[in-house]
């Protein structure tokens, strides 16, 4: 239906456009402007000065945090992809239709529970006298320091990303043409080999997109690194919240935020390129 936008059409189209331009595009654009403002006597003033960029990029602690955040997010996205794959594979190929829809339903539930509450709950498991250490004690092990470690941060990232990654992987796996798998078997490709030679390539787009989302979520998360990782090592998100909430250093926080957006755009672009590599469709 090719019709020019009329008053009728605009009534439906415009509100969202206006809202997202006003409250999504403008804030992000303002963030760019803000990064060039200066702070004098704890007051921000409009300016066009590269000082915030120079200050932040000149600090070792910033680059350390950048490296840490990137490494943690990359590790989390690889780890969650690897851990989620057997689960989504089994759900798509080994369960009946009914069991599969239940599995999907159950995986959606975590999205409607508070992430904060789940993170707190992990504290109960991981603290020095927590559930895990008590159980280890039964078999004569530990106690180990589990909380406030990088491992605990990872568990937090997994909590955040695992359900989403399973669902996204699942979504690409269930749409694989089953005859391709039969054809591979028929051409002497064994079970495990079929997974790598046929199933993973077939689902590549979905798998890469899932990993990308895991990266984006972990990269921006500040809850797990603080409340499970103990704030050490510092991540960019911690740096942003600290810089924002303590004192008027918003322009510097803006520099961090923009650097993060730039990084995410680059990663997303690379991931999508990789996902569709060699495809002409």
């Amino acid at each position: 239906m090719r019709r020019p936008l009329s008053l009728y059409g605009l009534t439906f189209s415009l509100p969202l456009l206006v809202w997202q331009v006003l409250f999504f595009v403008f804030p992000l654009v303002f963030l760019v402007a803000l990064s060039f403002w200066t702070v004098k006597n704890f007051r921000m003033q409009p300016d066009f000065d590269g000082v915030n960029w120079a200050t932040m990029y000149g600090r070792a602690v910033f680059w350390q945090a950048y490296g840490t955040t990137f490494a943690l997010a990359a590790a989390a996205s690889v780890l969650v992809s690897v851990l989620a794959f057997p689960c989504s594979y089994a759900i798509s190929f080994k369960l009946s239709d009914t069991a599969r829809s239940w599995a999907v339903f159950l995986m959606v539930i975590p999205f409607f529970t508070s992430y904060l509450v789940r993170v707190y709950s992990w504290q109960i498991f991981l603290s020095d006298a927590g559930i895990v250490n008590v159980m280890l004690g039964w078999v004569g092990l530990g106690p180990y320091t589990l909380l406030n470690t990088v491992g605990a941060t990872m568990i937090g990232y997994l909590t955040l990303t695992f359900p989403l990654v399973v669902l996204l992987q699942l979504f690409s796996l269930v749409f694989i043409d089953r005859t391709l798998i039969e054809a591979a078997h028929n051409l002497r490709c064994g079970r495990l080999r079929t997974v790598f030679a046929v199933i993973i390539p077939s689902a590549r787009v979905g798998l890469v997109i899932a990993a990308l989302f895991a990266f984006i979520l972990s990269f921006g998360d500040f809850v797990s690194p603080i409340y499970l990782g103990g704030g050490d090592p510092t991540t960019l998100s911690i740096l942003i919240t600290d810089t924002t909430k303590s004192g008027q250093q918003w322009p510097r926080a803006a520099v961090i935020a923009l650097t993060m957006i730039g990084t995410l755009l680059a990663v997303a672009f690379a991931a999508v390129r990789f996902a569709y590599k060699g495809r002409t469709k």
């Binding site: 936008l5 189209s13 303002f30 990269f219 921006g220 500040f222 918003w250 926080a253 803006a254 935020a257």
Partner: peptide, 30 residues
């Protein structure tokens, strides 16, 4: 409808949840 710039329109309509909340929070606050 089909119109010029529909891709941009849809991007605006769908992208926001993929921006990390810290960044969005900071941008909104400022």
């Amino acid at each position: 409808y089909r119109f010029f710039g529909k891709q941009v329109y849809l991007a605006l309509a769908l992208i926001p949840p993929t921006i990390p909340v810290v960044i969005l929070g900071l941008a909104m606050l400022a």
